[in-house]
Every structure is written in structure tokens, then in C-alpha cells.
């Protein structure tokens, strides 16, 4: 290989490396920000354990039919270089699903719900619905969104998760 060719190749590689770096910068700036968030869905089934009692078990949601219960788990990680403050995870609840009471409880986050398509949020005990001019307490069937409000900062490199269960209508 001639010296010239060698030089050219080295330049080309440097350019390519630069381009890759540039491309990943764009992705970071446009999409990921400083947090990485994934959601998975699993199916909750009851299985009989050795003592003959039924026990909840999470399995891959290969088949889901009406009446079955699915569990969504949202995992988030601070992949940036600064602590994230006031982290709020908002999850719409599909019309096909009914939230399972109490399933979103989380030790480190305050759990709130919306019954107005995410416009306002409140604690489960505070929400009200109006049916034909008559006010009543909201039920899990009314929930359109669930959200978790993190009480502490999410430090750099820290991970957290939130989950809730819902029944397919």
C-alpha cells in the first residue's frame, strides 16, 4: 500500500468517525435527553404453588384475552450528566383497559390519577366525576391516566421503575 493511499484511508476513517459522533449527538439532542425510558407489558396469571395456594406470576404477554390482567412496568434511567429534578412519569390508560386499584403504589413516588384525559391530576381519594349533573367519587373505571411524581432527585446513573396493573375489557 502506497503512502498516499494510506493517508487517504486514514482521513476517510477519521471523517467517518466524526460523522458517527455527529449523528449520535443529533439523536441525543432530539430524542433521548438525559433520561432513558422503557416500558414493558407482561401478563399476570395465577398459578398454584406447592402448598396448593394460588400465587401471582408475571409471564410474557403472548396471549391476552378480555378479562385477563396485564402489568406495565416503566423503567427509567438518568443517562445524562446532571441530576434530574421533579421527575413526573405520566402513563395514559388505554380505553381497552381498566386500572386495578392500588396496583400503581410506589414507595418513593406519589401516585396520582386523572379522570379528564390528563388535564388535571389528583389522589385516588380526591377525584370526582359528574354523571348527569350528579357528583360522585371517581372509580378506577374512570381513570384516563396514572402518573408518578418522584419525591427525590434522580441522580446521574440512577435507575427507577414504576408499574401498574390493568384488566383488558
Amino acid at each position: 500500500m502506497s503512502a498516499f493511499t494510506e493517508k487517504l484511508l486514514a482521513r476517510a476513517m477519521a471523517f467517518a468517525a466524526l460523522f458517527v459522533l455527529f449523528a449520535s449527538d443529533i439523536a441525543l439532542a432530539q430524542g433521548k435527553g438525559h433520561l432513558e425510558v422503557t416500558t414493558i407489558v407482561q401478563k399476570e396469571i395465577l398459578v398454584e404453588n406447592e402448598d396448593g395456594d394460588s400465587e401471582k406470576q408475571l409471564v410474557v404477554a403472548e396471549t391476552v384475552i378480555p378479562g385477563e390482567r396485564v402489568v406495565y412496568t416503566i423503567v427509567f434511567e438518568n443517562v445524562g450528566d446532571a441530576a434530574a429534578e421533579n421527575v413526573v412519569i405520566t402513563n395514559p390508560i388505554s380505553e381497552s383497559l381498566t386500572y386495578v386499584a392500588g396496583s400503581a403504589s410506589n414507595d418513593s413516588m406519589k401516585v396520582e390519577f386523572s379522570v379528564d384525559d390528563g388535564k388535571t391530576f389528583g389522589l385516588a381519594s380526591e377525584l370526582r366525576m359528574v354523571d348527569n349533573g350528579i357528583e360522585r367519587p371517581a372509580t378506577t373505571n374512570d381513570y384516563t391516566h396514572v402518573r408518578w411524581v418522584m419525591q427525590n432527585e434522580l441522580e446521574v446513573g440512577a435507575k427507577g421503575s414504576a408499574s401498574f396493573a390493568a384488566v383488558l375489557q
Binding site: G33, H34, V37, T39, I74, N86, P92, S94, L154
Partner: peptide
Amino acid sequence: VDNTALVDYEVNGVGQTQVPSTTA
């Protein structure tokens, strides 16, 4: 039936772009 969570947060008191989760 799709599920996508949305995450809002601040850095140093400044609101950041909302981050969508992967869709389950």
C-alpha cells in the same frame, strides 16, 4: 393495545424536553 409513558423533568430548575418511553 399500546402503552407509552411520558416523562417530564427539570435540570437545575429548567424544564427539559418530555421523554417518551418505548412503546409496549
